[in-house]
Design a protein around this nucleic acid. Structure first.
Lengths: 211, 211
DNA sequence: AAACGATACGGAACGCTGTTCCGTTTCACA
DNA sequence: TGTGAAACGGAACAGCGTTCCGTATCGTTT
């Protein structure tokens, strides 16, 4: 689970459905230079995110890609759009893992535990992503919205299943749980003394109390 | 290297002990204007923190106090020192509440729950404090260190007592719990759908599992 | 009281951000 | 091959934290 990103699949994202909509600028262009820059930019961003975190200066990404900053903003109107584009399929994979775990796991609560671990692993391996995903983070609202759109239904499904099975108390919203998990992951990659995974496990365990 | 020559020898009180640290830089000055500005600055900062959060621009604080930015930095070498000075008393109160709750509460775990509530209430009512307290937050290391210095022993005491009483698992460090609580409070004040107190309670409840 | 030396003062200036703007270049199509 | 539309680069703008330094003020000394 180390590398993860790379361009793997960026070229594959044909962008047919694209419910997010913000991808309009970078869909299928007639011009070759546009497509090339788009791809170069995504590769450069992925590389810079790994070394400098998702809050790396836009100029760094532009430099790494060998383009001007204007080009970055033309392709990705906001930094969040760039982050989304880079991590889109990993988020999707996380979303798709939900139902699979629910079907496979011994109990809904076990599935929830595993799904949480998956989500945590994703967040902590992307330098600064958890922090950037914060709701109040100016300029990253789109990122926050994307995570919610994609993962909230999955989280709700797991939560509902566990509640229906009588395993957990049913009065915590999926939104609260998602934010709790996301918050617990903030800064985890920079602090060896802190184990986000552990705390998230504790939180999920806490859901069982007084079921 | 560039020409960033510092001239030392101005701040004469560096070796002065002052460990627990009253006010950081400017304790008892001979000059009247110094003391006056110090006070004005603290009042202004407190007011601005309430309205704009602890990450408010230094210029705003200076303007509110009617002084130049240079004055702010002379009194409080870093923004974190200003934040610490403003909230010191409340942090101290929180630290002192720990042993009191332990003595009063029915069980150590109940005391831990109440203390966590106290800490959460403090954090969420100070706009942005939880985020600023983050370890990786550049320029706020001092703040992080102060919270740790002050509250970690208290948290450890509560945790140890609960563990000794057999109420909780004993393999979570006080540091991890503190960071977990702090993290869960991030952005709580800006999001009505999110209830940090609730999630922290869940986390603390999770400590009981498998005791 | 007046002059003096120390030091605090204000705010311009610096370096670093994200973002916008626009003159110039490149591309696809005719 | 010509041409117009679109993308390009990067200078420019705005806003941040922080530093620097000439000037103003203070407490002391004569």
């Amino acid at each position: 689970m180390n590398d993860g990103n790379r361009q793997e699949g960026q070229e594959g994202q044909e962008g047919q459905g694209d419910q997010g909509g913000q991808e309009g600028a970078t869909a299928g262009s007639k011009r070759k230079d546009v497509r090339r820059n788009q791809r170069t930019l995504l590769d450069a961003a992925a590389a810079v995110f790994v070394t400098s975190g998702v809050e790396a200066p836009v100029r760094d990404i532009a430099a790494k890609a060998g383009v001007g900053v204007g080009t970055v903003y033309r392709h990705f109107p906001t930094r969040a759009d760039l982050v989304i584009a880079v991590y889109r399929h990993q988020v999707d994979a996380c979303a798709e893992a939900g139902p699979a775990l629910l079907a496979a796991g011994p109990t809904p609560h076990a599935a929830l535990e595993r799904w949480a671990d998956l989500f945590v692993d994703f967040l902590v391996t992307k330098h600064g992503l958890a922090g950037a995903m914060q709701a109040d983070n100016a300029g990253f609202e789109t990122l926050h919205a994307y995570f919610l759109d994609r993962l909230l239904p999955v989280c709700a499904e797991l939560l509902d299943a566990a509640a229906a099975a009588g395993e957990i108390r049913s009065d915590l919203t999926a939104y609260q749980l998602m934010r709790g998990i996301g918050n617990l992951c903030i800064g985890a990659e920079a602090d060896a003394r802190y184990d986000a995974r552990r705390l998230v496990a504790l939180l999920v365990a806490g859901l069982r109390q007084g079921r």
